[in-house]
């Protein structure tokens, strides 16, 4: 089930990570892992990045690296930044709603979404 949830939100997570600073594929995978998503397989990560690029939300640049072949860096476009803000807000509402329902089931009273 967690994998399905990840599929739904991976694009948003990637956009948010890139909103902090640009990064390359391996770097993004490491940051996702550090955030608690565990190992995100390349077969899932790279198609998502491709989709974001095709939708014009990120653009890519190649940069020579000191150790090894040139790296492909991803960064947000203006459209990407706006989309990230939108989706993050939508996620905030959604999460509040889910929390309201699940936590109340556990007997905790929570303020509903504003």
């Amino acid at each position: 089930m967690r994998r399905q949830w990840l599929h739904g939100f991976l694009d948003l997570c990637l956009l948010s990570l890139l909103a902090e600073h640009r990064d390359y594929g391996v770097g993004l995978a490491e940051r996702l892992s550090a955030a608690g998503f565990g190992e995100v397989p390349g077969g899932t990560l790279y198609p998502s990045l491709l989709r974001l690029e095709q939708q014009g939300l990120v653009l890519t640049t190649r940069e020579p690296s000191a150790s090894g072949p040139p790296r492909k860096y991803y960064e947000l476009t203006a459209h990407g930044r706006a989309t990230q803000a939108e989706r993050a807000q939508a996620w905030g509402h959604f999460r509040a709603a889910v929390d309201a329902v699940t936590l109340s089931a556990q007997g905790v009273v929570v303020e509903g979404p504003s």
């Binding site: 594929g25 390349g42 790279y46 090894g68 492909k72």
Partner: peptide
């Protein structure tokens, strides 16, 4: 695309 995937794999080692 294939070349890029291969390059990325190389980067990741």
């Amino acid at each position: 695309l294939t070349d890029e995937f291969l390059a990325e794999a190389q980067t990741a080692g």
